[in-house]
Design a protein around this nucleic acid. Structure first.
Lengths: 344, 344
DNA sequence: CTGAAAGCGCTTACAG
DNA sequence: CTGAAAGCGCTTACAG
């Protein structure tokens, strides 16, 4: 691979001059510029980003540590992050934590070792040691979607409270009174906040949220299945299951279907996070949609502000309810009346 | 951030010695080793990967350029790639081409500039200039899923021919005779191969594949919608639509539903690539499943073999048919008999 | 406008 | 076993 020395030799100038034309430095003669450019052409020269980074102490790279690449929500987030970063002249390296704190830590460390300029993270838990260290060490950092309290890092996220309230109103209007939730890990903000929002919304209707109706999931499909089975085994199973993310909703559907039950006739289902497939599931699933693309872009802007010395701002955007048929409305076709469980 | 010099000073040795203990070089006294390790501890020292890479001329990083992150198939592929790479001591940087040759080129260039040790690519088209250059320049490279003819690069992919034959047998057995396909870009191998496999399988039953039954898509949902609308507008619309990937199947469903038609009563649907949601769509979708995880792992192994000087091998794994209900079997419940289109 | 030189943080022959 | 020194490929004051 040709190096800057080769280009300098080919163009008959010093490496300093080559570097200057490559970096658009103003004081370069027109003659030198054209000769360097020609040499770059003939040699097919591309600057070594590793060397440049070592010298300038910046990589123009952002790290993004997400909780689960297999979750369409994060994959969409990742896409918008990369897009905005690219538009602003940065690359992004994604680390997938798979909802595992140890893996999250692995990626944070690796990313920091590579000297990324800043870190975007959606923490998997209360904060793995490596992440906390990074935050304390002053690494430019922004939390997206999930965040950690007590750490001085800007947060870009969606507020689902109003949407959850709308959801509960919708469910209440349909006559549902026994509502359960499949929660995410309590150590994660989206895990606990969604439960709290749900509890508060229920309280407005005088409906309690008993512990047996709070299933502990981990945002992955398998946990949705397990928790739902537990709900269905209850002496008084819930009429509605609200999954705190789309993957656990998938697991819930698996469990419900395995029992030969139907949605929404036997049990209603709603999910946090909307995905294109929810339109085509049987039945279409009522969900709370986040402005995912906006979140990703805002997070990148905040992080780059921080990196480039401008004051970063936290951003909170509203989520909204998308009503479909999985909770019982609008009066689904009354097919296959034989069910073994009925609403209260 | 502490550098190797700081550690050396703290431990009272030279930087060479620090480097040796960090790299497990045998000739270091026990005493020096413990002092260095202690210094590393107290300073929270982490080696600068950028400097190390510049010096050793290796980054222990693999580049993965995929066609579309929003496609669950690629996201699963990416996950298995990262997993296997991590197990073998490598990191991976993902570049998302969004099915755009120009973006693919951007990522290949950026990755090469970063001096990744090897490149895994699922080419978006016949080969963008940057990619071809890289292959010719001898960059360690392996094609996954899609490949480019005439380039001497190992290929790790699935062979869907047998599965497509099984699919056609299944469709023929259900009485379908007018079968259409939503193809991927002809410039991509999976785009053309799937059409050819389909055509050959149909030929075995004496069924032709007229041009009007070949819709040109680009592997993204919107094209599936557009092509399907075209099919439905035909004087003699097909009885079956086979989408060459899951995203175009999603678009097809959107289009079918927009017309108020039902699957499979009015039109059957099958897809290449299986995803968890296909179990829960209305109706569950018959699909051809690839051994995605295996492909990702095999591709990483081949690439690392190449990087580390061992002869890499191309790998072809079989895909298989997963029959569900979207093509008409097993005799779906006869609900809502009022349809405006019937089978031949 | 231009070049020689220092230096970013490492690793690794080389000499001892 | 250990350290001084060179060098990876760049960028950037500094001097001219």
């Amino acid at each position: 691979m040709a190096s800057i020395k080769d280009v300098a030799a080919e163009a008959g100038v010093s490496v300093a001059t080559v570097s200057r034309v490559l970096n658009d430095h103003p004081s370069v003669s027109e003659d030198a510029r054209t000769r360097v450019l020609a040499a770059v052409q003939t040699l097919g020269y591309r600057p070594n980003a590793v060397a440049r980074s070592l010298r300038t102490d910046q990589t123009r790279t952002l790290g993004l540590v997400i909780s689960d690449v297999l979750n369409p929500y994060f994959t969409e987030l990742a896409r918008s992050v990369e897009e905005e970063a690219r538009a602003l002249g940065y690359s992004v390296i994604i680390g997938n934590a798979d909802e595992r704190p140890d893996l999250q830590d692995h990626h944070v460390r690796t990313l920091l070792d590579r000297r990324i300029d800043g870190l975007l993270v959606s923490p998997t838990d209360g904060g793995s040691p490596g992440m906390l260290d990074a935050a304390r060490a002053g690494t430019p950092m922004v939390f997206v979607d999930r965040w950690i309290a007590g750490v001085d890092v800007p947060v870009v996220r969606a507020d689902g409270r109003a949407a959850v309230r709308d959801l509960v109103a919708h469910l209440h209007g349909l006559g549902h009174r026994r509502l359960a939730i499949i929660a995410g890990p309590a150590a994660t903000t989206t895990g606990s906040e969604r439960v709290e929002a749900f509890r508060e919304a229920l309280a407005e209707y005088g409906i309690p949220l008993p512990d047996v109706y709070i299933g502990q999931g981990d945002f992955q499909a398998e946990s949705g299945r397990r928790v739902t089975e537990g709900f269905l085994d209850l002496p008084e199973p819930p009429e509605v299951v609200f999954a705190a993310d789309n993957l656990m909703a998938l697991g819930a559907l698996d469990a419900i279907r395995a029992r030969g039950l139907r949605v929404p006739e036997d049990i209603a289902l709603a999910a946090f996070d909307d995905i294109p497939w929810f339109v085509h599931t049987d039945p279409p699933i009522t969900a709370i949609a986040q402005p995912t693309g906006e979140l990703g872009r805002a997070a990148v802007r905040a992080l780059i502000d921080r990196i480039e010395g401008r004051p970063p701002r936290s951003v909170t955007l509203p989520a909204h309810l998308v009503v479909r048929r999985s909770c019982g409305e609008p009066a689904p076709l009354p097919h296959s009346p034989v069910t073994n469980r009925s609403k209260s």
